[in-house]
Amino acid sequence: MNEWWTGVAAIAGTMMVYAASKRMYRRFPAPLMLPIVTGTIVIILFLLISGIPYNAYMTGGQWIESLLGPAVVALACPLYEQRHLLKRYSVPILSGIGTGAVIGIISGLVFTRAAGASKEWAAAVLPKSVTTPVAMDITTTLGGDAPLAAMFVMVAGIGGVVVHAQVMKAVGVTDPVAKGIGMGSAAHAIGTAKSLENSETEGAVSSVAMTVSAVIVAFLAPLAGNLFL
């Protein structure tokens, strides 16, 4: 019975923290103010100060987490609604995303090996350019820790948003479709939110790129991981 109440409190508390951090972000829309950043910090601080073990918190937290699977499935809806974009620019879109996915996985492999990282770390780094729930699934499949994967995904997303304009300038990209492909395949959902502010086309392409990239990386990363880790 006690455990039941802990679970209910964890669910209610997480939802309250999320609602508050979402409101904060609306007032101060900076990348480091994203609900996932501030919300995570608040929950971690709360657990550390109150001394509640993470496992006890997860008796409730796991119920929220269990909605991630259906959320990934739901990505099929925006992808289907943007299918005209995929049809119209199929070759440039798929080639761009494919290149990004392959470069991301290869550089991830090279860097983790150069740093002398263990298999567990590398498994968390490899899928860092795809949306969090998919990255966590890939990392778990490869024998790594999902929270670490989520951390690296956030670094890629926030870092990507911060440097996007400079990177586009550096490689001489001015086309909104190409810009959206870079954003979606490198900085996933966090980047897509930013692209939507830049232009409608860039945002729509970024959302397509994010989902297609998740599918490509979900096929390639486990393959690369099993071969090279």
């Binding site: 620019y89 070759v91 440039p92 879109i93 080639s95 761009g96 995303i97 290149t99 990004g100 996915a101 470069i103 991301g104 550089s107 991830g108 860097f111 983790t112 740093a115 990282a117 770390w121 780094v125 860092k128 350019s129 690296f152 670094v155 890629a156 870092g159 990507g160 440097v163 996007h164 990177v167 586009m168 550096a170 490689v171 001489g172 990209v173 001015t174 086309d175 479709v177 190409a178 810009k179 492909i181 870079g182 954003m183 395949s185 490198a186 900085a187 790129a209």
Partner: peptide
């Protein structure tokens, strides 16, 4: 590794955009 992830993100973004603009 956080630094590595950041650099890898730059590479993914730059190459992905460049290839698609080239083909467009």
């Amino acid at each position: 590794l956080v630094t590595a992830v950041f650099i890898s993100t730059l590479l993914v973004m730059g190459t992905g955009s460049w290839v698609s603009q080239y083909l467009l």
